[in-house]
């Protein structure tokens, strides 16, 4: 049994513009994630990858299909039981600042999962765990008294990670966790996430649009295009011999930082942006 099993997930959103067709964000997605592994979902804007990440955590409800976590069908849980389940499954967002309540101190933010899931814990013990977790993600202890706005983008993302790991989840959705960060900070955050995965044996669903990042962090990769997974393969295999034409297009669009490596971009027949004024 896999830790996470998604079966034929379908999600359609009504279009915000009246008269437009509804957006079919997920069109029958199935995938599984094993204990301790990283599955990357790569796709471009409008592929449905972020919707998938939220559906797996049941932050939105599916129209059809199911998500099972550790054998439990999340769709069948009561709101109360679902909330209790969330100690085991967490998320780190793309926007570090927006994901932190600007009115709470870092200590207040990071302690919150403990207050929710272990309400009997003593204040002193909570403080001890918060400081230990801040230290674990590379933040100084006095950060606990700061407000998120006083920190740099990289530090804010470390706070987001500390909040996610303090309840010791077995599974985390990482929704473009490094996309808004500078290159050197990005490398540090990726290294931190890899260390934490080793230490706590967490499974990751790593949502990204960046082939370079995905190549360096994942065991397997699922390629999403317009709400469907067009190809899933182990990382090295996907890069060595991509099956689907869209995967080949994505790989050819990669820009290597080594000028000796050249890729010629090859367009994909289904690529809407090439030929017509796209409506979206």
């Amino acid at each position: 049994m896999s830790l996470v099993e998604v079966d034929s997930a379908v999600k359609t959103f009504a279009s915000r513009v009246r008269g437009r067709d509804p957006v079919r964000a997920l069109r029958g997605i199935s995938l599984h994630i094993e204990e301790g592994e990283t599955l990357a979902v790569i796709g471009e804007s409008g592929s449905g990858k972020s919707t998938l990440g939220r559906a797996v955590l049941r932050l939105l409800d599916l129209d059809e299909g199911s998500v099972r976590f550790d054998g439990t069908d999340l769709g069948g849980l009561s709101p109360h039981a679902m909330r209790a389940m969330r100690a085991d499954m967490q998320i780190v967002f793309q926007e570090p600042y927006e994901s932190l309540n600007p009115r709470l101190t870092v200590g207040g933010i990071v302690s919150e999962p403990l207050e929710i899931h272990q309400p009997r814990l003593k204040t002193k013990e909570i403080r001890r765990q918060v400081l230990a977790t801040l230290d674990r993600v590379g933040l100084p202890g006095d950060a606990a008294r700061r407000l998120p706005g006083e920190l740099s983008g990289g530090q804010q993302q470390r706070v987001g990670i500390a909040r996610a790991i303090i309840s010791r989840p077995r599974f985390m959705v990482l929704d473009e966790p490094t996309s808004s960060l500078d290159l050197s900070i990005r490398a540090q955050i990726l290294a931190l996430l890899a260390e934490l995965q080793e230490d706590y044996k967490m499974a990751y669903l790593f949502v990204s649009h960046d082939m370079h990042t995905v190549e360096s962090v994942s065991d397997r990769i699922a390629v999403m295009y317009l709400g469907e997974i067009v190809e899933t393969a182990p990382t090295s295999q996907l890069f060595a011999s991509p099956d689907h034409p869209y995967t080949q297009t994505l790989l050819s669009a990669r820009l290597s930082a080594d000028p000796r490596e050249r890729h010629a971009y090859q367009s994909y027949a289904g690529d809407l942006s090439v030929t017509s004024p796209a409506s979206a």
Partner: peptide, 27 residues
């Protein structure tokens, strides 16, 4: 500049590019 950088900062920047060496090496 990109293959044989001289300045420390350039070296650090280029060293920050995610490498395809598998995730365990990142750590």
């Amino acid at each position: 500049v990109m293959v044989n950088p001289q300045h420390e900062y350039t070296k650090k920047l280029i060293g920050s590019v995610p490498k395809a060496e598998g995730r365990l090496n990142v750590a």
